[in-house]
Design a protein around this nucleic acid. Sequence first.
DNA 1: TATGAATGAGGTTTCATTCAT
DNA 2: CATGAATGAAACCTCATTCAT
Lengths: 194, 194, 194, 194
Amino acid sequence: MTGPDDTRAVPRRLLSEATRLFAEQGFDRTSVQEIVAAAGVTKGAMYHYFGSKDDLLYEIYARVLREQTERLEKFAATEEPVARRLFAIAADVVVSTIANLDDTTIFLQSMHQLSPEKRRTVRAERRRYHERFRGLIEEGQQTGEFRTDKPAEVVVDFFFGAVHHLGYWYREGGRLSAQEVGDHFADLLLSSLR
Amino acid sequence: MTGPDDTRAVPRRLLSEATRLFAEQGFDRTSVQEIVAAAGVTKGAMYHYFGSKDDLLYEIYARVLREQTERLEKFAATEEPVARRLFAIAADVVVSTIANLDDTTIFLQSMHQLSPEKRRTVRAERRRYHERFRGLIEEGQQTGEFRTDKPAEVVVDFFFGAVHHLGYWYREGGRLSAQEVGDHFADLLLSSLR
Amino acid sequence: MTGPDDTRAVPRRLLSEATRLFAEQGFDRTSVQEIVAAAGVTKGAMYHYFGSKDDLLYEIYARVLREQTERLEKFAATEEPVARRLFAIAADVVVSTIANLDDTTIFLQSMHQLSPEKRRTVRAERRRYHERFRGLIEEGQQTGEFRTDKPAEVVVDFFFGAVHHLGYWYREGGRLSAQEVGDHFADLLLSSLR
Amino acid sequence: MTGPDDTRAVPRRLLSEATRLFAEQGFDRTSVQEIVAAAGVTKGAMYHYFGSKDDLLYEIYARVLREQTERLEKFAATEEPVARRLFAIAADVVVSTIANLDDTTIFLQSMHQLSPEKRRTVRAERRRYHERFRGLIEEGQQTGEFRTDKPAEVVVDFFFGAVHHLGYWYREGGRLSAQEVGDHFADLLLSSLR
DNA sequence: TATGAATGAGGTTTCATTCAT
DNA sequence: CATGAATGAAACCTCATTCAT
């Protein structure tokens, strides 16, 4: 909960509290009243900065997508062999997903509650991300490093299923650190590709 | 939508329409009114058979869990080597998940909308299923067929993440049949374990 | 609650459970379902014997009124001086009210929930009872035993207010027995009349 | 009914119409829709000011209790002999009860429909009032002005029964004015105490 | 920028009653 | 005599959103 001493800008506070509440209770179960109360403002203030409750959700998505894409680009741009690049990216997406588990949880549970138009935008961005990832697998298949009897698309869906599901079981302070899970997942992915 | 010629018993019709609507629109976005209209009865009838909207969701879960557990037991009981048993089970869970994609979608999106008490029951049953699956991996690790440098639990979560996400991308009539996806997924799992 | 071994006739059991539940929760807060469950029968059975939920209430009233009127007549018919007759009646109405506190509670709280027609019937009977009681006071005023500077009607309303309120404070097993309260009340009434 | 020209604040109007309707039809028989229609607002407005229908009832109680307590304190604080103070208070409680007959009627008929927590609060306040009244009787018993063979508590219950029942028979414009009834009742009380 | 009163539509649930069996 | 499935109306309440200030 945001105290009266929270000096972050109001929109930032609203987004942050909305993220937490959506992840905890779901989008539909969270009322605008709860969000503004948690952020320490009134409804009018929220509607001053955001067009609707939907908008809040969209902004959360947009930030997650932007950050994930940036990270992927950073790792993909190195000169390493493709297997190492893929490993690094796979491990990193796990680590960063765990670091922002709330956002990912919302992403998966609330996507279909977005207005159709915004849903299209989000989906398109998501697809671009997947295609970038798939490109790396295909690159490895062409260089002969990865097996070619599995469609790259299936492997991508296989792997991102696992990633998206982290929110259902991963708990901070559990047996494995985020980095360890990332390494395990990346290793399982690479193993299955050889 | 159920027409006036649908002669199935009312509770069955209600469950079936509820499943479809929950999967399409989400639990919270689906009104009781929509469900009963689709089933061709009135609200009173629904509350005669089910204690609440929640109950409807719970009954859907209970059926899915029961059926999946039965299938696992059937495949696990054969005399095959553990790698073959695991492959068969992994492929089958994909096929049966695709065959009941609506139910699985609901499972993942609406679990947290269940009342706490019922959620506990469902989670306990789910855990039993996972543990049974994990036991097979551990068996393979003990016989030396599977690598031992990966915790069996991580592998289970990795694989079921992929399975649970089928609903997000698999479309009937697409490039791959359910069986093909099942074989691919099972193969990826087994490959990553060797 | 009525057990399966309750061999009283069904209508009697229904009335008895209804009385208890109405007194505990109020007429509107008690559902037909609760009543029939407590009586160990189904709704159909209730509607076989009683025309409506209202009817149950009416039957309860009718019994109370009949019994109270009978008692008053019995005491009024003696040859005692009027002060003694009035004392006996006043004390007795307290004792019998306490003995049937549930019925009286219902009477006061639920009268206005009766259908207009039945309400008229009940009110008329009630008025007759009050007039009979008032007659005794007037008799005492005419013989000079009671003061004449108080309208008999006011005294009746004064006294029956106190009687009807027994349900709000009297508790079985408290400091005073029903008879003691009856004697006190009758004594207060007679004192105030001299 | 409140017309569009009623310029009192919305909460005041809601309370006033609710009081009237509860007294006329009972709490359970009065719908929120009826109340807001009578007050000329929408349901949303009511729930903006009051947490629930229950709350409306509670606010009515709270006001009655507060006013009655204030009046009692005012009369009790004089230097008159105890008999005169008690007479004044007893007559006044009748007059003020008649002046707010709706509130009192609700008090008696609907108390048990209040939520348990609020009921406790109301009951505690009520008890304090009764104890204050009882204290006056005990004071008169100690000074020898009142008889001591009647427990003060019984006399209090006797008298307030009569007061609380005014709503069942007193009608504006009838034979007796509120003041006349008050004087009669107070006189009956004092007579019975000597 | 921000408030908070007010709207109006829609939500889940309850319930007295009916009726075919 | 009795059942219990089904109705349909109405109940209380929630909530995203608007707007005068």
